[in-house]
């Protein structure tokens, strides 16, 4: 059984990759996937620490996160689809109507 710090390290790395994806990529689908990556990095940290401390709370939280992520994916993809229909693009730089 690997020590929890390994899991935490992996979780941190995954999270940073997700952040970098959100900040740097322009494709909205990729940004969306990066957000999922960040969520799952957190999930990993939860289950790892839950197991390390012998608590079930970590696993329970993960189920909530996954449920919310599913709902979020449905709403988010719906929005992306709607935008694509109107603008014929999924480049995040193009979506700047709500500006000064």
């Amino acid at each position: 059984m690997a020590p929890p710090s390994y899991f935490m390290g992996l979780s941190a790395i995954l999270f940073c990759i997700g952040v970098a994806g959100v900040m740097l990529r322009r494709n909205v689908i990729i940004i969306f996937m990066s957000i999922e990556l960040m969520l799952n990095a957190v999930n990993l940290a939860f289950v790892a620490l839950g197991r390390a401390w012998g608590s079930v709370d970590g696993q329970a939280i993960v189920f909530f996160v996954m449920t919310v992520a599913a709902a979020e994916a449905a709403v988010g993809l719906g929005i992306i689809l709607a935008i694509f229909r109107n603008r014929a693009t999924i480049n995040a730089d193009e979506f700047n109507l709500m500006r000064w």
């Binding site: 952040v19 900040m23 979506f95 000064w100």
Partner: peptide, 15 residues
Amino acid sequence: RIETGNVQHYALVYL
């Protein structure tokens, strides 16, 4: 002027 409308700029500030 800081309200660019670009969602990634907002995300950066949030980060």
